[in-house]
Simulated scan of single mutants.
Amino acid sequence: MELPASPATTLDALQQRLADCGLQPAASRHGTALCWQGLRLGGSDSADIDVELAVTPHPAARQYGFMLFVGCTPALREQARPLLDALAPAAGAWLWCGPRGAGRFCQRVFDAFLYINGPLLREAMQHGQTQPDWAAFFTSQLQLGQQLLALAQQYRRAQHDDSQPELSALLQEFARPPLLHSHYALTLARLLELGLAQQQLTQGIFEQLLRPAP
């Protein structure tokens, strides 16, 4: 089972949102980047992008704002704040995730959680059933958990992070507002790996619960 793919939101849609909000000076398009006051913003974490924008779209995004996951330095974050506020549903309603690359990681994680609590649950309830197919639902959750674990491990490797923090310290750090984190995405990856690494035990419990009674 694949992680749910996010439809690609074009820079045209972002630019239209900014135009609707009357952002001045207006943002312009240059290749795959949206340029504003000397900043290059785009969906890539490559070196030619100053601010990474990972965008989860929804049908009313142009009217109400986009779900934004931002990857950049703190200084560039503050420089881009007026533009980010205009793109989001409300001022400050966007998530700064850490350096470039952090935005895409957090977007994939959050999209997976939304998928578990939305489409995946609806898929389990078919043909007007009053009860979901819990066996299929839990199996799909476990498969998705395995992919999230791999995603978290991959991100930690990319950050050269081999620390082994205590769960209590991680939870305390994660409870802080994201803007107070030095690297929100890395804290999230550590929490995911610590929690999902216990999945084999969880899987055994689910299998016992779902096993037909003799």
Rank of each mutant, 00 (worst) to 15 (best):
P165V: 01
P82L: 07
L188Y: 05
S163L: 13
Y115W: 11
P7D: 09
G92I: 10
G22N: 09
H30P: 10
T73H: 01
Q147M: 12
A26H: 14
Q153W: 03
Y115P: 03
T56G: 14
C72H: 01
L76I: 06
G195A: 11
L148P: 00
S168C: 11
A91W: 09
C106I: 02
H183L: 01
D45L: 15
Q198I: 08
S168D: 11
R176W: 14
Q146I: 02
R122C: 13
C72N: 01
P59Y: 00
Q141K: 15
L209T: 07
L194G: 10
P57I: 11
A158D: 07
L196R: 03
V51Q: 06
L114M: 13
Y184S: 04
D162S: 12
D162K: 12
F105R: 00
A175S: 07
F138A: 05
M1W: 08
G43A: 02
A175C: 04
F113K: 15
Q147W: 08
G101F: 00
C21H: 13
Q107A: 07
Q79F: 07
I116K: 14
A54M: 02
L192K: 00
Q16N: 11
L151S: 00
L76N: 06
P119C: 11
D133H: 03
D12L: 05
L121P: 10
G103E: 09
L39K: 01
G43T: 03
Q24C: 15
Q146Y: 02
R108T: 07
C97R: 01
E2I: 15
F110Y: 07
V109E: 06
F69E: 05
L120S: 02
P4M: 13
R81M: 13
R77G: 04
S163Y: 14
L76Y: 07
W36Y: 04
Q16G: 10
Q199W: 10
G101V: 03
A33L: 09
Q159F: 03
D161M: 12
A135Y: 05
A8Q: 08
A5E: 08
L201I: 11
M67T: 14
V109F: 05
H160F: 14
L95V: 03
L95A: 00
L180H: 08
S182G: 14
G118Q: 15
Q198W: 08
E52W: 01
P4Y: 06
A136L: 09
Y155R: 06
L194Y: 10
G65D: 05
A47W: 08
